[in-house]
């Protein structure tokens, strides 16, 4: 018994020393809360949240100012829930959560001006001067940054269609308990 206590104590001590050493050795400048918040955001830097980019939004959230946790539209409710968990606050309803969408260019209308390519923060649009453009749907983050710059309004945000590849099982309803 006593050996067990000693050996566990020894291990705890070692682990503690190890952690301390790691903290010194791997210390980086920067706020860990901001970092984990940034990791929860989609890194699109689209500015939809009203801040200059994901990092700025993360900093604002971490600063303790009153900033809504539901501002990231590409991240959707997924990102909002992660933020809520990190900050230890209650999840809120998303203002406009239309589910995942992708940008779709009506190619017959496109004049090939390349304005949308310049706007897309993740290079999810391909095309060349005076050629019809198209969106790489897998890469699109639903940020809408390309919609406004298009001079002929031929970009539309469309819901990601259901297919056997993105379909999910619904969760069983669970026991319907009645308490007597």
């Amino acid at each position: 018994m006593i050996e067990a206590v000693l050996s566990m104590g020894g291990m705890a001590l070692l682990a503690g020393l190890g952690l301390g050493y790691a903290a010194i050795k791997f210390h980086v400048e920067g706020n860990p809360v901001v970092e984990s918040l940034e990791a929860a955001l989609p890194a699109t830097n689209c500015g939809n949240c009203g801040f200059p980019g994901c990092h700025a939004y993360a900093e604002a959230l971490a600063s303790g100012e009153k900033v809504a946790i539901s501002l990231c539209s590409p991240g959707g409710s997924e990102a909002m829930q992660s933020i809520a968990a990190i900050l230890g606050v209650d999840p809120v309803a998303m203002e406009t959560d239309q589910g995942p969408r992708v940008a779709m260019i009506h190619e017959e209308k496109c004049i090939g001006c390349t304005a949308c390519i310049k706007a897309c923060p993740v290079d999810a649009i391909v095309g060349a001067n005076k050629q019809s453009h198209t969106v790489i749907a897998d890469m699109c983050t639903d940020c809408e940054a390309c919609v406004e710059p298009c001079p002929v309004d031929c970009i539309e945000m469309v819901p990601v269609p259901d297919s056997i590849y993105n379909w999910k099982w619904d969760k069983p309803a669970g026991p319907q308990v009645t308490i007597h």
Binding site: A39, P42, A43, T44, N45, E78, C120, P121, V122, D123, A124, M139, T141
Partner: peptide, 15 residues
């Protein structure tokens, strides 16, 4: 989602 976020990050940085 995690893989996509990572890819997004890389593509955004590249851009």
């Amino acid at each position: 989602d995690k893989d996509k976020a990572e890819l997004t990050r890389q593509r955004n940085q590249a851009k």
